[in-house]
Simulated assay, not measured.
Amino acid sequence: METSKMAPQKQAALVVGASRGIGRQIAIDLAKINTQSSSPQNHLRRHPLHSPFPDPNSPSSTINTVAREITDSGGDATPIVVDTRDPSSIQRLVDETIRHYGRIDVLVYNSGAIWWASVEKTPMKRFQLMQHINPEGLYGCVQACLPHFEAQGWKGRIIVVSPPIYSRFFRGKTAYAMGKVGMSVLTKGLAMDFEREGKEGMAVTSIWPATAIESAATAQITARDPAEGKDLRKASIFSDAVLAMLRAETKVVNGLLDLDEDFLRRECGITDFGKYSVVEGARPRRIMPKVFPRLEVEEQEDEGRRVDSSKLRKGMAKL
C-alpha cells in the first residue's frame, strides 16, 4: 500500500497494492504530479541512492522501495502495511493516511489474489483467500474511505482494478472471476448510489488491461520463453489510463467498466500504442473482446418498490 500527496491541488491518493507492477507504476505516476510543488517536505524527504532499485516485478520490490523511489525523486509517499483480509487493519490504514495527510481524494484498489483453475482444481482455502482479498478487501477500503469523502463534501475518486462483465471471462477461472466480477458489481452499484443521491463530485470506475501487462506473473512466463515478451505491454499504459480517468469529468467515468487501451483511444485520442510495448516494434495480442455486452435493460429506470434494509432495521429496533 502506498499513500502519496499530489500537487498542485494538494490531494492525497491511497493506492492499495502498490508494491510492484501496475500498483507501483500508478503510485509513482500519481506522485510525479507532486514535482511541480514547492512544498518543503518534497525537498527535505529526499534520500541518497545507496543501490539501484529492485526489479519492479520482483518480490524485492516492496512498498518501502517504492516509497523511496518516490521520495528520492522529490515526491511525498508514506508506506503503510495493511492486511486487506482484516477490516481492522484496513481501518488503521485509512486512519494513518488521514493522520499523515488530513484527507483522501483518490482511492485506488489494486490489491488482488489470483488462481486460474477450474472449480474442481480450486481448493476451498484458495477460493476463500481470493474472496477475502479481492471483493471483501475492496468493500472494506471503500467503506472506510466513504466517511472522509463525505467530510470533504462528497468529492473524490475511486479506481478499481476489475474487468468489464462478460461470460468468456468466467471460463477456466470461475473462483477468480466470482471475486473480480463482484468488484465490478460494486463499481456499478456504488455509482448508482452516487448518482441517485446527487453526489456529483464522486465517481467510481473499474479498469482492466486490454493486453497482458508486464508483471511478476508474466515474468515467470517470459523466463521460460523470452519470445512471450512480444505480447506484453508496460505497466505505464495502465497508469496513463488511470490518470486520464482521474482527470475526466465524473459524469464520464462514474460507473464505467473499461479497458486501458480503449479509454485512452476514445477519451484521449491516442492511436499509436507502440511506446507501451515491452518488445520494441511488437504489437501485443489483445486478450479482451472488442465489444462488451450491455448490462442495462429496457426497464433500467424502473426501481420497483425500493427497500432499504438499514431503515427497516431501525424501524424494527423501535418496536
Rank of each mutant, 00 (worst) to 15 (best):
V106L: 00
Q11F: 01
S236P: 13
D240T: 15
F194W: 13
T35P: 06
V252A: 15
F53L: 15
Q220N: 13
Q91K: 14
Q152H: 10
M183N: 08
I26N: 03
Y139P: 00
R266L: 13
V82P: 04
A282M: 03
T174R: 02
P135H: 10
H148S: 12
V16T: 11
R306S: 11
K275G: 06
A210V: 00
T62N: 10
G269W: 02
G140W: 14
G137V: 06
D193W: 08
N57C: 02
L246F: 07
P59H: 01
D258F: 13
E280P: 02
E249G: 12
A175L: 02
R171P: 00
G304P: 03
S310R: 03
D262Y: 05
S184P: 07
P56G: 05
V204R: 12
R285E: 05
Q131W: 08
K188C: 08
R306K: 08
L14T: 09
G112A: 11
W116Y: 04
P289W: 10
E136C: 12
Q11T: 05
D193K: 10
E96C: 09
Q41W: 05
E296C: 00
A227K: 09
S61P: 01
L295F: 07
S111R: 03
A77S: 15
E298V: 14
I237A: 13
G137H: 05
V119T: 11
S19K: 06
Y109Q: 06
I26P: 03
A241M: 15
D302M: 02
V160E: 01
M245Y: 11
L256P: 02
A219W: 00
T97C: 04
G102R: 14
F53E: 15
P164C: 07
S38E: 09
G229F: 14
G156F: 09
K173W: 06
N110Q: 05
E280V: 04
R103I: 08
S184V: 03
A235P: 12
P54C: 10
